[in-house]
Write a protein that binds this DNA or RNA. Structure first.
Lengths: 345, 345
DNA sequence: CTGAAAGCGCTTACAG
DNA sequence: CTGAAAGCGCTTACAG
């Protein structure tokens, strides 16, 4: 029972005995073009009967829109990256769906590919706007997009003209560190992604502030920059190398996300450290697995879905030409205490 | 330095002193319309100079395409579902990118919303085709789509006309069960999603076959159907209720995916079972966290990215009107032995 | 070898 | 209140 060729607005017009302009007006509730109640009713009925729905591409061409926003997310490494991105997808999807937009995943393996993809998105008008993650210093994506395609950054940038949605990462790391200090820790390690990422910079700053305010020294040798990005494997190697390097081991470690923390747990076990007795561990994100690790992971919850929801909502407003104020939103974080930090016995 | 209004094919034609048809022919390497080498060169140069790239929506309207395929994936529960879907997104993305297509996420909270979404996709021609996951018996999505929009199912269906890409789930569960039997287990529990899903049906069948062939009884009381879908929380409750229900506990448990297995580990710990000494655990999927659990999880690796890659590739062929043979692909699975099954001491 | 014209399916001034 | 026409930016027969 295949339905025959697609119903177009012309078919509806013909059957209803009106012009296509009238059909369009009725469907768009376009009251700049008044339509009598009777005509309106008739059109609606025919629309119903024929199952007519305007084609998105046709509307798009006419209106100069794609009704699509792009999410530029890393696909590497394999096995896959932080669950953070998946929460973000869900949040962005919520916002786009509410406004009748669609979401397209712009996946890339490395920064070069990401830039090429964004360039293509601009020149072929593949999407109406993009959401960018994890900005770095002198981020080449920003000048590429600026003035060419609306975009919102999940994270922080130096440029005040750019729309951003971010956590207060300084505060988040500070709270986690203070929690460890309150538990008596003085040698707290920090496993972080490269400092060129603002997120890493901000969190190290929060960690530093907490130490300073508690009168504890900020020791560079307790920091490890991972080789790569997120992931348990990466965290494992980073923390292992730290444990092997230090003469006096740390009594606690802060990891920049839960997958890295998972790797820390593994490295600690391998080196004979009991968590939390010999070593307290705190991660970030409150990923799905974190409550179910052994021991369950204390973590700073990042509301990635909320973050992405606001970002997508903001982006859609920009696309539709609304005035968007404020241009920078900060979403709070939350320390979730479980067993891995030793506060619960 | 905003670039001025978008460059169109007309601009290129004007500057190059040719017609738009010629520009289009050159760009599409459309040799049904011969263009002299000289003209061709000139056009290409102007294209380069002006930075012209054809707009995707315009091409799409003309060709009756969106250059978009949809991935219908569940967004619930929160915290999010099995990492399986994320691997699948990566795989599908790879295939679409290779052919210059884009991928759109059709996210839904429940089956009703999924149907509405698919209906919309059909009537508004939002995408050129869709990828469907986890088919059930009398799946209402199939008749909705059939004849209206190309689609490929990741999983199995009863209808031989439908294109599918699936694991050999019977075989996969059989191998895992046989592995446990070889380790001496006789009472093997199975935590599975509802049997209306073919995946669950097939895996229970493989489990049954392994038992039968080993001369062991298939005991219904050792099966637990989870309330819901995937996730550690869900697995925890299901397995806990099983442990509380049984007089004689199982010595091993097979869980339908690693998130459910994670929940089993937790329930086991709570009930005082040591894994793997008192209880062997095997999951499915080889999710990113599985190698890093305590103990690391033995699991049947499902190549979700490969699965989705093939499915997307198949879908793209269907969309482009190619003859696609065969219509059903089976991707092998692989047992990955780690500590949780007790085979490694 | 190249161009003029039609048309994909819509929406939007504009005229009546 | 309603319709005829233009046009979004392309591609594709068709004519010359």
């Amino acid at each position: 029972m295949k339905s025959k060729a697609t119903v177009t607005i012309r078919d509806v017009a013909k059957v209803a005995g009106v012009s296509v302009a009238t059909v369009s007006s009725v469907l768009n509730e376009n009251y700049h073009t008044r339509v009598s109640a009777e005509t309106r009713k008739r059109v609606l009925q025919v629309v119903q009967e024929l199952g007519y729905r305007p084609r998105r591409v046709a509307q798009g061409l006419r209106k100069g829109m794609t009704y699509l926003i792009g999410l530029a997310i890393p696909l590497q490494p394999d096995p896959p990256l932080s669950p953070f991105f998946y929460d973000a997808v869900a949040g962005a999807l919520k916002a786009t769906k509410e406004k009748g937009w669609m979401l397209s995943i712009l996946g890339f393996k490395d920064r070069t590919e990401e830039l090429a993809l964004l360039q293509k998105a601009v020149s072929q008008r593949l999407v109406d706007g993009v959401l960018l993650f994890d900005p770095q210093e002198n981020d080449p994506r920003l000048p590429l997009l600026k003035g060419n395609l609306p975009f919102v950054v999940l994270g922080r940038t130096d440029d005040p003209e750019i729309y951003t949605v971010d956590n207060d990462n300084v505060e988040a790391a500070k709270l986690a560190t203070q929690h460890l200090i309150r538990l008596g820790h003085k040698r707290i390690a920090f496993v972080h992604i490269p400092l060129s990422y603002f997120t890493a910079k901000d969190r190290v700053e929060g960690y530093r502030q907490a130490l300073m305010e508690a009168g504890l020294p900020f020791r560079k040798e307790l920091l490890v920059e991972v080789k790569g990005y997120y992931g348990a494997e990466v965290g494992y190697h980073a923390f292992l190398s730290l444990l092997e390097r230090l003469k006096e081991p740390p009594t606690a470690v802060l990891a920049m996300d839960d997958t890295l923390a998972l790797g820390c747990l593994q490295a600690a076990a391998e080196k004979g450290f009991k968590v939390p007795d010999d070593l307290a561990v705190i991660g970030f994100n409150d990923s799905a697995f974190s409550a179910h690790c052994e021991p369950p992971l204390t973590t700073v919850r990042i509301f990635a879905d909320t973050l992405a929801f606001y970002a997508a909502d903001m982006l859609l407003r920009l696309i539709q030409g609304e005035v968007v104020i404020p241009s920078r939103i900060t979403v709070p974080t939350q320390l979730i205490v479980r067993k891995s930090c030793g506060a619960m016995r």
